[in-house]
Design a protein around this nucleic acid. Sequence first.
DNA 1: AATGATAGTGACATAAGTGTTACCTACTCG
DNA 2: CGAGTAGGTAACACTTATGTCACTATCATT
Lengths: 191, 191
Amino acid sequence: MARERKFTTDRLFQEVKHVLLEHGYEGFTFGHVAERLDISRGALYKYYENKEELITDFMIYEMDNALQDIRMIETHRGFEAQFDCLLEVIFEHSMMHQILSMAHQLKGSSNQKVLENKSRLHEFHTSLYQILQQFIDRGRQEKVLKEHLPDELLLGVIIQMINIPNHVGVQKEAWIRSVNEILRHGMFEKN
Amino acid sequence: MARERKFTTDRLFQEVKHVLLEHGYEGFTFGHVAERLDISRGALYKYYENKEELITDFMIYEMDNALQDIRMIETHRGFEAQFDCLLEVIFEHSMMHQILSMAHQLKGSSNQKVLENKSRLHEFHTSLYQILQQFIDRGRQEKVLKEHLPDELLLGVIIQMINIPNHVGVQKEAWIRSVNEILRHGMFEKN
DNA sequence: AATGATAGTGACATAAGTGTTACCTACTCG
DNA sequence: CGAGTAGGTAACACTTATGTCACTATCATT
């Protein structure tokens, strides 16, 4: 060891997330992050060679957390209980979706670390897809999900629903309950 | 008149949209747009003083088009017909949502034109909200929408559904039909 | 053909982000 | 205590975008 760091990795990633959400991928700069951490820009280069490396490292961190939580749905018995659980989890990780959408904007890098990171991100994505696919399969086996709706639409809808802006102060519980209700049985009164 | 322009306004806005979607607000540069139009960067400054002015002008153009189409729902009788129409329209203008979300990133400008544009955008937003609110009200009057679901959730869900990525080649008609089905009666089989 | 008006260009000064590095600082351990 | 090590800073050279401007190009009108 030696001198103590002025920031933890958690704190760093928290600020990376903030800057990414506020300025987008192309508006993300080391300057922004350094300022929020109250350190000099140069200090960041001790740990990350460039933008891509920092951002992909961050994405892996987020993806790892999210995936661990999502796997929790497998501890529930029955599709409906899993459904409720999944909605909760996606709600907690609602930013993940937007952030991972920036993965497309990553520049082609020659940096070895970045290439590895990209590859790992790809694996995570595959794992996520598998888990969700199993989830959908189960819903079909249990005859809960409507047969004629295509898989990718079902998944897309669930994930997308989470990003509905909740500007007005609706309580989280009430919000999730309503979204859950709409996903299950729609917004129309049964006639 | 004098010399003929090398690009139409429609063409310009088409490229502005493309660059905004590809690079995001902060990644948007006059250089990108000029390159796509095959003119020099300087030429653009003949018409727009800066980024803000060009982007807000573009947003007004998009918002105006979208609003005209959305007003068409009022030509339909009955809530359910309006519902179908609205879904079609939002689908056609699916990019509008992402693009307008960039309005938050606009820098505070001292430019008079930009201030006017922002103000007009605000009016458009208000109009849009009013139209959709009337639409929801109607759904409630006709006892079609479930009473207990909050207004902003209903609107949010409808708008958000449109952004579901359709990577796989599902036909537009089938796609809209499925989304329509889910919004109305959910993805669960009636037990 | 000359004029005027608008379209477009290329170069310049400026501003902001990048990546590197010499140097300073704080802490630990023998 | 002092030597080693890791954290942090600030300045430098470089790159890319910005906004401006003098200049050239094209066309309609007279």
